[in-house]
């Protein structure tokens, strides 16, 4: 009898821990959920060059060991502002692969973005609930019916998430670097396809179009398997939303930015933004 009780208690606490984990797993906490795009090259020459790109989800940056990434919502913007179709999409167990034919000279942007409301609360019995469910995409207006507005400890947040990378054929152009003014975005003051070891790069981070202080940035260089630590570079934006990075090593970098504050629009009380970019730094 006693052991049974113990067991059920244990199970309950396990469940609670699980629930905690699930909350942590909500899209904006990328800790256990790193998404990335990996172009085979970001600087290309020649007539209409082709480039292949990988898309995956894994904690080890640029190692395909967890899950492929859906690219249905990926948008590739050509230098003239038109959409470029991705070709030869192949979805594997651990990675998605596709090709791009860069028919125009200039800089292309590959971007995926999403935004929406999230809620968590407790029932009368003290059980934690959250909405939308993990991996679920809610229907428009579902928030009104699915979330009890008078629930205990109700917390509603508005989250936005964006992932980008840039590829240039010939000379870099600026047109695709325009920001949308929605969610957390990076405004490169140094062209993202003109990054070189030993030089400085400046990037401004904007939340809903405003330069924002206190955005937390993590930069991880490729090849972490061959060193003992990921050697992540942690930075925080200043008043003007700026970070200055001095590249001390060439390589492909994964940049993640995270931000949250309480300046959300009702019904949300919390505003969260996540941004990811893949940046290539070339040697001198």
């Amino acid at each position: 009898m006693k052991s049974k009780l113990m067991k059920s208690k244990l199970m309950k606490s396990k469940l609670l821990i699980l629930a905690g984990l699930v909350v942590m797993n909500l899209p904006l906490t990328a800790q256990a959920h790193r998404l990335w795009l990996l172009p085979a090259a970001t600087v290309l020459s020649g007539e209409k060059p082709w480039v292949t790109v990988d898309a995956a989800v894994s904690n080890d940056i640029f190692y395909f060991n967890h899950h492929s990434l859906k690219v249905d919502s990926l948008k590739v913007t050509a230098p003239d502002g038109s959409d470029l179709a991705i070709q030869n999409v192949s979805v594997g167990k651990h990675r998605t692969v596709f090709d791009l034919e860069l028919t125009q000279g200039g800089t292309y942007k590959l971007a995926m973005a999403s935004a929406g409301l999230q809620a968590r609360w407790e029932t009368e019995e003290g059980e934690r609930r959250f909405w939308p469910g993990r991996g679920e995409t809610p229907a428009p207006g579902e928030f009104d019916t699915a979330v009890p507005k008078d629930a205990k400890n109700l917390k509603v947040s508005h989250s936005s998430r964006r992932m980008e990378t840039f590829i240039t054929a010939g000379a870099p152009t600026e047109s695709v670097l325009e920001v949308t003014g929605k969610g957390l975005e990076m405004q490169p003051l140094t062209h993202p396809n003109d990054l070189y070891n030993g030089e400085e790069a400046r990037f401004r981070f904007l939340m809903d179009g405003e330069p924002t202080e206190g955005v937390k940035i993590t930069l991880i260089r490729d090849g972490s398997r061959y060193r003992n630590s990921p050697e992540a570079l942690e930075l925080v934006t200043g008043e003007d939303g700026l970070i200055v990075v001095e590249w001390s090593q060439a390589g492909m970098y994964w940049l993640e930015a995270e931000y949250e504050d309480d300046r959300a629009r009702a019904p949300a009380t919390l505003r969260k933004g996540g941004y990811i970019a893949t940046l290539e730094v070339l040697p001198q």
Partner: peptide
Amino acid sequence: GEGEKWLKDLR
């Protein structure tokens, strides 16, 4: 113009 593909390697 195949050879132009490698011009970028003159970094």
